[in-house]
Simulated assay, not measured.
Amino acid sequence: MTAAAAGIDPGSPGNDESEVLTPTDQQAQQDERATERKHQKNKTNAKYRQARRAEADRVVVLEELAARGQLTEAQVAELAELQPKVAERKQQNKEANAKEYQGRRAEADRVVVLEELAERGPLNEAQVAEVAELQPKVAQRKQQERANLAKHRQGRKAEADRVVVLEELAARGQLTEAQAAELAELQPSRSGSSKRGQISRSIARGERLLSIGLWCWRSWRRGGS
């Protein structure tokens, strides 16, 4: 008896053949589930970070009120609850950042060592694999750092230019209330930027001297090998 004669639709869910998934279909379903899980995890993490940020911002507000002696009893209790949590997170973030920096610095130093070894002769198989893994990561980080520094400098330059404009308006007595507030906010930033600029230039000079010293040391090592 045929399926049609038995009253069974060949394309219905009751047909065993229609329920069999090909390897491609199975992989597609797995990828879809993985994407959904990742999306959900990102949403959860974003809410978690947002809540933590809100608590940190709230502590700042409460501390400002406390400095002016304007805390209510409820706010005193709220600050006592939030302040230790926010301080602990800051410390954890500080330690995590320090650990990450140390790891990145160790990788950069290792690349320098491997490149020096490569200059003196062929690397062994393990070292070739190691430098092939580390070199792109270190190069990408350096490029990102340069891009971030350039973006930071552009922002500082824009602030400095804006201060000049506002100061000219102030000299002519043409500042609006909003512009006066903007100038009051930007002026300390500009002063701090000038000091940071002096520090950055000192650091840059130190880095140049360090680079020269490193080049001389490498030359000495190559000449002595």
Rank of each mutant, 00 (worst) to 15 (best):
Q102R: 10
E81G: 07
E55A: 08
K90F: 06
A77Y: 02
G69V: 04
R53T: 01
Q83A: 10
R89E: 13
A67V: 09
K94W: 08
L79R: 03
E78D: 13
E73L: 09
R53E: 00
E78W: 11
G69C: 06
Q75V: 06
N45M: 15
L82N: 06
E63M: 14
E64F: 05
K47T: 09
R68L: 13
Q83C: 11
A80Q: 13
A96G: 06
A54R: 02
R68M: 12
A66R: 05
R58E: 00
R89C: 13
E81H: 13
P84C: 00
Y48I: 12
E100R: 13
A66H: 04
T72C: 00
T72K: 05
A54S: 03
V86K: 02
R68N: 15
L79Q: 05
Y101R: 14
E64K: 14
L65V: 02
E55R: 07
K47E: 07
N45C: 14
R89V: 11
L65K: 03
L82I: 09
A80E: 10
R52E: 04
Q92A: 10
P84E: 03
A51F: 03
V86R: 02
A66I: 03
N45E: 15
Y48Q: 13
K85F: 13
K94V: 03
E64P: 06
Q75H: 03
A46M: 08
V86S: 01
A80N: 13
N45P: 06
E78F: 08
Q91F: 09
V76E: 05
V76Y: 00
K99D: 12
L79P: 04
Y101C: 05
Y101M: 10
A96P: 03
A96K: 09
E78Y: 11
L62I: 04
Q70L: 15
L62C: 04
A87M: 06
R58P: 00
Q50L: 08
K94Q: 09
V76D: 02
Q70C: 10
R52G: 00
A77P: 01
A98V: 10
A66E: 07
R58N: 00
L79M: 09
A51H: 03
N97P: 08
E64S: 14
N45A: 14
Y48E: 11
K94E: 09
Q70S: 14
E78I: 11
Q91M: 09
L71D: 01
Y48D: 12
L62F: 05
Q91T: 10
R58W: 00
